[in-house]
């Protein structure tokens, strides 16, 4: 049991700092530099003085995601106070999140300081790929969990320790369903769909497309080889979320990356700091 925020180890979440060529199993259980507020707000549950034989009804009116939302707002404040831009990258497994991350770090790593939080059920394979770029990275293994939550991210940040005016990219667990519901404290969700998936993904998984502000259509270099109608996919996506900002690119070949990189830079605080 973690003393400051009351989390227990029973959900088998592991947080590991990964450096080039190694993975030192640090973190859970861990000492926390900051304590978490109670995840639940205390509603006024009036216990009636008179007893009923059928028991007492306690009014609660409590949001089921209140605890996560509170911790997410805490993370958001933490990011804002440090001038950190945080993005939550979501997609189905294999859409190319990690390749996009690696290419982004390679392209902007000299101008900006990045930190990455990698979410996967198991293994540190993705974090190792990120570590090869020289970027600070923490792997969160969720065990049975199908999504990152704000609590995991808060602990990951204690290990990652991103500097002020940096960029934190959070790669969520590959899953187009569950991560849609969990705010991590990011500025926005960036949803990645590859052209090897069906163009009807936005209609099949509308919650994720609604929760995202940005859509990246990845692997466009494969378009000549697959039956993927870009226009239809984007029409479906905008039917679900008319305000989606869309980028079409191939993280592998670099085609179309420039627009995404420019957008990312324009989201930064006014005076971003180059790497030390």
């Amino acid at each position: 049991m973690c003393e400051s925020c009351g989390c227990s180890d029973d959900q088998h979440v592991r947080i590991t700092k990964v450096t080039r060529g190694q993975a030192d199993h640090a973190a859970h259980p861990h000492d926390h530099a900051h304590s978490h507020a109670h995840g639940h707000s205390h509603s006024h549950d009036h216990d009636h003085g008179h007893s009923h034989s059928h028991g007492t009804t306690v009014s609660l009116e409590e949001d089921l995601l209140a605890k996560n939302n509170l911790l997410a707002q805490r993370n958001r404040g933490w990011f804002e106070g440090r001038g950190i831009l945080a993005l939550n990258l979501v997609s189905s497994p294999g859409a190319g999140k990690t390749t996009l991350l690696v290419r982004t770090l390679e392209a902007l790593g000299k101008e900006l300081t990045f930190g990455v939080i990698e979410g996967d059920q198991e293994t540190s394979e993705d974090a190792k790929r990120i570590a090869e770029t020289g970027c600070g990275v923490v792997q969160v293994n969720t065990g049975t969990g199908c999504h990152l939550d704000a609590h995991m991210v808060a602990h990951a940040l204690e290990t990652l320790r991103p500097p002020t005016d940096s960029v934190v990219l959070i790669e969520n667990v590959g899953n187009l369903v569950c991560p849609a519901l969990f705010d991590l404290g990011e500025m926005c969700k960036v949803c990645i769909v590859s052209v090897t998936e069906g163009e009807d993904k936005p209609l099949k998984y509308p919650y994720m497309f609604r929760a995202s502000e940005v859509l990246i259509l990845n692997k466009t270099d494969l378009l000549p080889h697959v039956d993927f109608d870009v226009g239809r996919c984007l029409e479906y996506a905008r039917r679900v979320n008319p305000d989606l900002k869309v980028f079409q690119l191939s993280a592998r070949t670099g085609e179309g990356m420039e627009e995404w990189l420019t957008w990312l830079q324009t989201q930064l605080p006014v005076n971003p700091s180059p790497p030390a």
Binding site: G55, T56, T57, V58, L60, E62, L64, L65
Partner: peptide, 10 residues
């Protein structure tokens, strides 16, 4: 909506 409205305790 996703909320816990109330509960009954013995």
């Amino acid at each position: 909506e996703m909320r816990m409205k109330e509960m009954e305790v013995a």
